[in-house]
Computed example of a mutant assay.
Amino acid sequence: MVDVRRVKDLHQFVGDELECKVIEMDRNRNNVVLSRRSVLDEARKQEREKVITGLQKGEKLEGKVSSVVDFGAFVDLGGIDGLIHISEMSWTHVDHPSELLSIGDTIEVKVLDIDQERGRISLGLKQCQDDPWKEKTKELKIGEIVEGKITKIVPFGAFVAIKEGVEGLVHISELSDEHVEVPEQAVKTDEIITAKIVDIDTDRRRVSLSIRQAKSGTVDESAEAESTTTTNVETEKSTATEIQDVSDTEEAMAAADKKPKKTTRKKTTAKETRGEKERKSRRRTSP
């Protein structure tokens, strides 16, 4: 074992002085088995520990692509390899890492995570590039009513394309005011719908939409207008009634003032009349 990787042509080492480790020895046969790889592995381990302890999460640095595999690409950071997972290569969909990277490419990467115990480093390539999604969603506002096309239906809702390169999710609970067992009961693929933006998460690159709130919002406004009109009419009726009551009261008071009052004078006159009759009667009977 001459190197950490398999070597096809060993002639390149002829004449070189190599530091090796004795891994097997047979004195009876005068046979000694050496390993240069063991020495290199130990040296790489020490170098790896030195490099990994010097790295910080979120740091950006340059590296060289050492290997390209189906699930990503390995990058040599100078003594230790880090992995760029295929999902961290581009903001757009990538079928295979070879579409973007080749062995020997020098690239800038961002340290996403460091596993000290396992000696693993997770890297990101797209984090060193501008995110077009954030630029496209700058003009969107929470509460805005937008029109979009349903691109995909899943058990928990439906995805809607509201701008080029920007999709939002309508959760199954936001599809309709009525209970929905499956999204297909309320919407279908390629259907053009109107929805309300209820949340925008730039960190997770998610837009939450609601068809139900977009519809109920229109109904609520009409109901509110109708309620306001009704309230105004009731207020006008109440005010007119109060004015009429005041007017009736004033007229009643005026009429009461105009009615002839029965005074004590009439009663007194009647008493005086009876008194006079009695006096006249006494005069007639007196001698």
Rank of each mutant, 00 (worst) to 15 (best):
M1K: 10
R6L: 08
D9C: 08
L10R: 07
Q12G: 02
F13S: 00
G15K: 12
D16T: 05
E17P: 10
K21S: 11
V22P: 05
E24S: 13
N31G: 01
V32A: 03
L34E: 03
L34F: 11
L34V: 06
R37P: 00
L40M: 01
L40T: 00
D41A: 00
E47L: 15
R48N: 01
E49C: 07
I52M: 07
G54I: 03
L55P: 10
Q56D: 09
K60R: 12
E62N: 13
G63P: 03
G63Y: 07
S66Q: 02
G72S: 12
A73D: 04
V75I: 12
V75C: 04
L77Q: 01
G79T: 04
I80W: 00
I80K: 00
D81S: 02
H85T: 10
H85S: 07
I86V: 14
I86L: 11
S87A: 15
S90M: 07
S90V: 12
T92E: 13
D95Q: 14
S98P: 09
E99H: 12
L101E: 09
S102Y: 06
D105C: 05
I107E: 05
V109D: 07
I114P: 08
I114H: 08
G119I: 04
R120N: 00
S122Q: 06
L125F: 15
D131K: 09
D131Y: 07
P132L: 04
E135M: 11
K136A: 06
T137Y: 08
E139P: 12
L140A: 08
L140F: 09
I142T: 05
I145R: 08
I145M: 09
V146F: 05
E147A: 06
G148Q: 08
I150K: 05
I150L: 02
V154E: 15
G157C: 10
G157F: 11
F159C: 12
A161Y: 15
I162A: 12
E167H: 15
E167R: 14
G168D: 09
G168H: 13
G168R: 10
H171E: 01
H171S: 01
H171F: 07
L175C: 08
L175M: 09
S176E: 02
E178F: 03
E178K: 11
E181T: 12
E184I: 05
V187I: 10
T189G: 00
T189S: 01
D190V: 06
E191T: 01
K196I: 08
V198G: 01
D201H: 02
D201P: 02
V207R: 12
V207F: 09
S210E: 04
Q213R: 10
A214V: 12
K215T: 06
T218K: 13
V219D: 07
E221M: 00
S222Q: 03
S222K: 02
A223S: 02
A225S: 04
T228S: 10
V233R: 15
E234P: 01
S238L: 15
S238W: 13
Q244K: 14
V246G: 03
S247N: 10
S247I: 07
D248C: 03
T249L: 03
E251H: 06
K258D: 02
K259P: 04
P260D: 02
P260F: 02
K261V: 08
K262V: 11
K266F: 10
T268S: 14
A270M: 14
E272K: 14
T273Y: 12
R274S: 14
E276R: 13
E278W: 09
S281V: 14
R282M: 14
R283D: 07
R284W: 15
P287F: 13
P287S: 13
